[in-house]
Structure formats: structure tokens, C-alpha cells
Simulated assay, not measured.
Amino acid sequence: MAKTLIRVGPEDFSVEAELAAVRRESPSAGGVVSFVGVVRDANDGARVSKMTLEHYPGMTEKALAKIVEKARERFHLIDVVVIHRVGELQVGDQIVLCLVSAAHRGEAFQGCEYVMDWLKTEAPFWKRETTPEGEHWVDARESDDHARARWA
């Protein structure tokens, strides 16, 4: 049975537990692909000590659900798990998990990339980084727009 899990909140997640659940509940999946985004210690040449993520509750989950549904239809995905953390995160902390399964690896890889490319540009999240020079909001990247455009 197809599973969709979308969760946005401050709680950390277990990649292993989510992967085990997908594998246990979806015997028809021949490929499972995951992506884990992590807070890194530098961005655009500046040292980063922490990141704060904000979202618009309700609207963010709705936007993620639309992205997941399009990916599910386009790539014949069986399961899709999207967990995105918000709040204050330290360097090395997990930010996002995108886990997808499909009958074949090609659809699973493409589905995972599609979800992440659209999430980066269409889901209402705002990032604020703390650097030695102070705090600043992270601007959208042109490279993210280009990545999303390849799916049009």
C-alpha cells in the first residue's frame, strides 16, 4: 500500500527507522532512494555556526503535499517520506529527509531529485544563518531555480 508521510517540526528523525518502515511496508518496491540535508559549517565562503528555519504552518505542509503528489504521479512512486525540521539547528544537524520508493531504481532516483528540487524553490521555508558577522536571511539560489526548471 502506498504511503505518504509529510512532517514539519523541530524534532530530529531517524533515517534508519524511516527506511526500515518503508522497506517493511512496501514489498513491491525494487528501489529506495534517500536524501538527507545537513547544516554545513560554511555557506558562500562565510563560516556558519547555526541555522534557524522558519515556516508557515499549514501552508508549508500543503505545498509539500502538492509536490509529493506530482512526483508520485510522474515517477510512479510507491512511498514518499518528507520530513523537514524547523527551529534552531546546529552545524551537523539533519535538516530534511526525502525518502522515496518505486518499483525500479530509475524512478526512485528521479522522484527523490524532483521532490528536493521543487521543495527548495516552492515550499515556504525561510533560513537564517548565524555567522561571525551576525545573522542574515539566506537568499534563494539561481541554481535551485535551474534545477527545478529541468522538470518542466
Score class of each variant (00 low, 15 high):
50 K>E: 15
41 D>E: 05
59 M>I: 14
55 H>K: 07
69 E>V: 04
74 R>P: 08
62 K>N: 14
39 V>D: 00
59 M>F: 11
69 E>L: 04
67 I>G: 02
63 A>S: 15
52 T>C: 08
49 S>Q: 11
39 V>E: 00
76 H>R: 14
41 D>K: 01
37 G>S: 05
41 D>S: 03
61 E>C: 05
63 A>R: 13
60 T>A: 05
71 A>W: 07
47 R>S: 12
65 A>V: 09
62 K>T: 13
61 E>W: 10
43 N>I: 02
67 I>P: 02
43 N>P: 00
58 G>V: 09
42 A>C: 04
65 A>C: 04
50 K>Q: 15
59 M>T: 14
55 H>A: 11
76 H>E: 13
36 V>R: 06
60 T>P: 06
68 V>K: 07
41 D>I: 00
44 D>C: 02
71 A>K: 01
47 R>Q: 14
53 L>N: 09
60 T>F: 09
46 A>L: 11
70 K>I: 02
60 T>S: 06
61 E>N: 10
43 N>K: 06
39 V>N: 00
36 V>L: 03
52 T>V: 15
43 N>S: 04
46 A>V: 12
55 H>P: 01
54 E>P: 05
37 G>P: 05
58 G>F: 13
42 A>W: 12
74 R>I: 11
45 G>K: 08
55 H>N: 15
73 E>F: 04
39 V>R: 01
56 Y>N: 09
57 P>I: 12
56 Y>L: 08
